[in-house]
Design a protein around this nucleic acid. Sequence first.
DNA 1: TTGTAAGCGTTATCAG
DNA 2: CTGATAACGCTTACAA
Lengths: 341, 341
Amino acid sequence: MNIYDIAEMAGVSIATVSRVVNGSSKVSEKTKNKVLKVIEEAGYTPNVFAQGLGLNTMHTIGILVPTISDLYMSSAVSYLEEGLHNIGYDCILSCSGYHATEKDSHLQMLLSKRIDALILVGSTYAGSEDKSHNTDYIRRASEEIPVFLLNGIIEGENIYCTASNDYQATFDATRRLIEDGRRRILFMTDSRSYSANQKKKGYIDALAAMGEKVDPDMEIFIKNDVDYVRKSFGQYDDLRYNAVLATDDAMAIGVLKYLTDRSVAVPKDISIIGYNNSSLCVCTTPELTSIDNKVKLVATQTIERLEEVLHGEKMVAGKNVVACELIERGTTAFSDMDPRR
Amino acid sequence: MNIYDIAEMAGVSIATVSRVVNGSSKVSEKTKNKVLKVIEEAGYTPNVFAQGLGLNTMHTIGILVPTISDLYMSSAVSYLEEGLHNIGYDCILSCSGYHATEKDSHLQMLLSKRIDALILVGSTYAGSEDKSHNTDYIRRASEEIPVFLLNGIIEGENIYCTASNDYQATFDATRRLIEDGRRRILFMTDSRSYSANQKKKGYIDALAAMGEKVDPDMEIFIKNDVDYVRKSFGQYDDLRYNAVLATDDAMAIGVLKYLTDRSVAVPKDISIIGYNNSSLCVCTTPELTSIDNKVKLVATQTIERLEEVLHGEKMVAGKNVVACELIERGTTAFSDMDPRR
DNA sequence: TTGTAAGCGTTATCAG
DNA sequence: CTGATAACGCTTACAA
């Protein structure tokens, strides 16, 4: 069942059928209805491969994500998919893991599918200061199609970034803790990604701004896993911390669990702040205070930029930043003297 | 840069280039190397649209899921994507929501992309006894391409199902609770999907098998949301339940939160069992006992069946069932008298 | 408004 | 082993 069959049945040429299918205006109402009726009855669907060949697009967007089995990523992809669907694009999903060579090969696979644009989800694709993972492969991709980074920043032609302001978020959170009398703040992270670096910078700058000394021992690199953190956290006892700022909720919960096991009072003796404001936060006791990095907003704005770029708009902002919000729950108890309350 | 360019540069015909690209054996080592070198230097990549047109496939699998923003679904998709990638398929993801018309339209969108097979994730696609959502649209899809259900069962030609044995799981869990002296077991669900029905049946049959009376009031239909359950659960106080069996972890956690707020002792006075064994389970205090429905195994087996079917194997099992496992944590305290321990 | 015909870039069937 | 050449099913100037 192809366009020739329809043309014959309707007694018109294939060009006319094509025009009807594509909603071209230059078809008389009469023939249009005739053709539509035949299409309907025959149950005809255009062959997208042939369409793709002719138009050089299949209206497909590639989404690359380290793993979809992560609350932040799956949430982001959920919003992205919805937005793309609304503007008539399908999305092909690829999970690359965190390893550089895998990221590259998955990206190549996506590019070979002739996608119209590429969305990279998560700051793991934004490289970091130590050149351990570089971003050349992304730049190369951007020579072929527009590349959108969700929660990462790379400067470059045809690269469009939307990220939450993680620097400001940790800066504010750290200052808030210090103002509340917590001066020994543990900073926990599991990554050297762009985002992780921003968070760390915010933490350090806030310490400095508040006149506190920056102690490298207070920066902890650890696996982002509740059980792992819970079981291994004893090694940090002698740091005599009274607050914890984690770059992911699961780490924070690991600490909370550890402290609860040891009957340490949270938040009375130790305050804990997580990151992402995931659904895990409301499960713990006490519930976890967390920084909401506004994944919905970031995803929505990514789609808006994408739509602009794909519609050929010039002058689309290459960089977009969204403010985070501290969601206070039971693992912190800030005094009401804070100016922002 | 197309096959003609390469052919010219290499001084061969396009047929030869095509053979080299597709690794056909009938090319001399010499010309093969010559062509490969030219391809390498030119950075040529075959146009997948043209390939698709010729071969009538782009090696793409459609994955339909109600939402990717759900721990079970995202975990399933994660395993599916990995498996598909390994056997050379890309996946195009579509999130349909739970509404019948949307499910149908998203499925049509996927079919129109000429995918090689369709995977439906989650029992929401398997319909239910009340004909509120029917499964005709799935049957129709199966006339065009093989359809794979992950965690749902529909009988039919060209439909292949892999599901966890939810019936047995709730049957065993219920019996276990009764044997432990918990005779007033609340059953909570948020759905009338195939899977939800199986779970309910297991619960009811176990009650009957153990000589307990089945009280319809003990079956609670409620939203699967921690906060919602927590805030609204007071209305069930007079049911005087001493155990809760929920069809999803979030619901179970809502109850746990409610009971903790009211200082009810869990598991001493009330036992709680969740479902899915999600990452939420280890976050609560006490941690949540949950039924592990083996999403990894189900996904892996789905991919195995898919590979068989796509490789043209006849006699592929249309129905596959995987056993669940009760993961005991802090919200239950079964006595050691239980025969299975 | 409609039709004709030339691409789009492959694969695959034949001959040679 | 290699090369012409005909599909594959559509879009789109260009004619009419």
